[in-house]
Simulated scan of single mutants.
Amino acid sequence: MSQFDQIIDRVLAHEGGYVNDPRDPGGETQWGISKRSYPQLNIRALTRADAVEIYRRDFWQRVRGDELHKAFAFQALDAAVNHGIGNAVRWLQRAAGVADDGIIGPRTLAAVAQADPADLVLLFNAERLEFYAKLGTFDAFGRGWTRRVAGNLRYAAKDN
């Protein structure tokens, strides 16, 4: 079983099923896949299996999850899903102490490989929490977001 297959259920548990909350800038979503990002999809009819393949292709591969330490790979995937690839990559780069250009290249991968995975997880999630706190929708969704990060820190302790 691949690393992705071992952790995707965590992301799906965070994202849940069908949601169309008018307060959520993501709009209509199913399994965390949004109509805004995938306008061609019938979101209500999106299957779990289809969502998993979207996450594998459009998120896991773009954060180069197979090349990340297992204690950190889930963190990168979950943030990419929740905040977008660019934000997740820049936070990863800041946590690893390299220029945050939004591109995972050889320098970023080398820095990540040299970093202590536990330190990387902590620094990355600090970036994530600061981002959440700046959002105008924090009052509506902040409690759930901070619980998500708390759960992710618990996963990191198990994954290390």
Rank of each mutant, 00 (worst) to 15 (best):
M1F: 12
F4Y: 10
F4M: 02
D5R: 09
Q6F: 06
I7L: 14
I8S: 00
I8W: 01
D9P: 09
R10V: 15
A13W: 06
A13T: 14
H14K: 10
N20H: 04
N20K: 14
D24W: 00
D24M: 05
D24P: 09
G26T: 01
G27N: 02
T29L: 08
W31R: 06
G32P: 13
G32T: 07
S34K: 09
S34P: 10
K35W: 09
K35T: 08
R36Y: 13
S37Q: 07
Y38A: 03
Y38Q: 06
P39W: 05
Q40H: 14
N42G: 07
A45Y: 05
L46C: 13
L46I: 12
R48A: 02
A51W: 06
I54C: 01
Y55W: 11
Y55T: 08
D58S: 12
F59V: 04
R64P: 01
G65A: 05
H69M: 03
K70Q: 13
A71V: 00
F72C: 01
F72L: 01
F74H: 10
A76L: 14
A80V: 06
G86V: 09
N87I: 09
V89W: 10
R90Y: 13
A96S: 09
A96C: 06
G97S: 14
G97W: 04
A99T: 15
G102K: 00
I104C: 05
A110T: 15
V112P: 04
A113K: 08
A115Y: 01
P117G: 13
D119A: 08
N125E: 08
A126I: 14
L129N: 06
E130M: 09
Y132R: 04
A133C: 00
K134S: 14
L135E: 03
L135D: 13
G142Q: 03
R143Q: 12
W145Q: 03
R147C: 15
R148F: 07
G151A: 10
G151D: 07
L153Y: 13
L153G: 08
A156F: 07
K158W: 15
K158T: 15
D159I: 03
N160Y: 08
